[in-house]
Design a protein around this nucleic acid. Structure first.
Lengths: 339, 339
DNA sequence: AAATTTTACGCAAACGGTTGTGCAAACATT
DNA sequence: AATGTTTGCACAACCGTTTGCGTAAAATTT
């Protein structure tokens, strides 16, 4: 291959018969440099397509201009929206993104966190895996003054800024909506409460029932493990075959709701007339299933944006690194499954 | 903030009273260094958590260990699968990924390509935007000996290795399947033919009709512009209201198929009894719509993996940079919409 | 014992920028 | 005219690692 060397400051300096430092300063319009020289240097650089060696710059500045992102799953509508927001914001500020998956496993999370740490990212964004109950792999960043921001799946054991959606009110609005539609016997299929989102949504559900004076039964709350469609199907079956079947389902996520809908359709229950179904997250598919699924929309893109802004701010100044919480609003999207 | 400096080779050298170069070599077990010294250095490095400064290493090697990825859309099931494959493969080989979106616009594609170029990526993966008909922004990489690999949306004007799925046979299999099910009047809703995938799928469709001796009508082929659900709906309406309505639809993508299904359901056509519908891409939602949508599955993860492998190989040795084509097989996924 | 080879390490340059400091010339002030 | 100030640039150190080369000491061969 042709061995074309990239143009360097030294080359320009030699060509114009001035010093390297003058070239460097001229390119950034340093006040010490005369306008004539600035023009001269810039013209030459432009003409010869000078592009600064970022590797050298970053090394000198001891900054990678990389931020790390750890998410449980990449192939996921919500998380890809988040990524999209992160990328846009990061790029706007001259930062690049290094994305890693934890696959919802603590082991993998630790592995990729260490990799990002050795890569010397300037900051870290993370949505914790469901398994995460230790934080040493994240503390090492803080010990090295590398700011961390958590989003969506967060923990209060990690004292860093966080961005979440208002799961509580999202759930509250969703459940209230079904109550107003006349369906007051509402079941809830949720995840384990160690995950903050699950806990908040459940609280919102309970508060709505309470505020509207609806029946509350412990066995109307089912705890999913993997949060799959199958679980939705199974629990729907259990609940609908019980002595006191509900006439509405509030599901922790759209996938579970789909399982519930499948059971209901298989057994000739009419949605929403007989039984209403509400999801959470508003996946793309929610609008395409039949009947279209009502859901609580989480602003993924916005979360990504906001989290990245917080992180970049923390990178700039130390004071921004205190734990603080940004809570973004959810939007109730009403479709056919709740009338 | 506490000003804790990272441990450097110099620190280790000073502590052990040996030279920096010996430390450097010891850590990589250079044959010039005695086993005793290697052990000594490694022990010290381990104990004090030495982590090499990648910024310095990369600068010194003049390698960023970054590869760029340009895709039309991030929030998209297929592309996030691809990304997932790319990330895994890249990380396995010590490379990081810089992801950019073109939003299907040439202008954006050029912008991000330039950004990646200045970032000095070691290689570039790209799936072209639908608008791309110029290639200067990509040629600059080749001129600088930075290898490029294209996938999915490719162009033969770009003489670099490419990875695609077998759109032709995917389409052929899909259409043949419907014919075998007894639906011989098959319409096709496709995209513009300058996009290679659209062209291949259309050819596969035509070949299947021909091989099975089915009617072929030019007006059974509709050309979508944005490839949206609405277009599917519109064309389904047009076709079903025509004098000679088809009894099957082969759609260039699942989204279009959903639009078609919507029209059919709205107008009381039975799927698949009256009219069959076939999509392409096998999006997540295909299995959740009613009736579940048959589709042609594209192995996104595999494409990402393969493309990355080709790229990394090209980075390693110049000879691997010749244009060559890897074609991955598709899988026909039969669901309710085709019986 | 002298000559040769091997072993094990140190020295110093290099990568391409950034930046603090020094200094001559030009200009302004008294 | 002597002094002080500003302007515009050059010098050189520096970031942390890699690597070619040189060389004493040890090991081996004559």
């Amino acid at each position: 291959m042709t061995d074309k060397k990239k143009l360097t400051l030294k080359d320009i300096a030699k060509a114009l018969n001035i010093s390297i430092s003058t070239v460097s300063r001229a390119l950034k319009e340093h006040p010490d440099i005369s306008n004539d020289t600035i023009k001269l240097v810039k013209a030459y650089a432009e003409e010869h397509h000078y592009v600064p060696n970022l590797l050298a710059v970053n090394f000198r500045q001891n900054k990678s201009y990389n931020i790390g992102l750890i998410i449980p799953e990449l192939v996921h509508h919500f998380f890809s929206s988040v990524i999209s927001g992160v990328i846009q914001t990061a790029n706007q500020h001259g930062y690049n993104l290094m994305i890693c998956q934890s696959n919802e496993k603590l082991e993998d999370e630790i592995k990729v966190a260490n990799a990002l740490f050795t890569s010397r990212v300037d900051g870290l964004l993370i949505s914790l895996s469901n398994e995460t109950d230790r934080f040493e792999h994240l503390f090492q960043f803080l010990e090295d003054d590398i700011p961390v921001v958590q989003f969506d799946k967060i923990s209060d054991k990690l004292a860093v800024p966080s961005v979440t959606v208002d799961d509580f009110h999202g759930a509250y609005k969703a459940v209230s909506h079904m109550i107003q539609k006349g369906h007051r016997k509402i079941a809830h299929i949720r995840g384990r409460l160690i995950v903050q989102n699950a806990s908040e949504r459940c609280k919102g559900y309970e508060k709505a029932l309470e505020d509207h004076g609806c029946e509350q039964h412990a066995d109307w709350i089912k705890v999913g493990k993997d949060i799959t469609e199958e679980e939705g199907y199974t629990y729907a079956k259990e609940l609908m075959e019980s002595d006191n079947p509900p006439n509405a389902f509030f599901c922790i996520t759209d996938l579970v709701a789909l399982g519930v809908m499948k059971y209901l359709k298989d057994h000739a229950f009419k949605i929403p007339e007989d039984v209403m179904v509400m999801g959470f997250s508003n996946w793309k598919m929610a609008e395409f299933v039949t009947p279209a699924l009502s859901s609580v929309d989480q602003p993924g893109f916005l979360i990504g944006q906001k989290a990245t802004e917080l992180l970049l701010e923390s990178i700039k100044n130390d004071e921004s690194r205190m734990a603080k919480t940004v809570v973004l609003p959810t939007t109730l999207v009403i479709r056919a499954s709740t009338g």
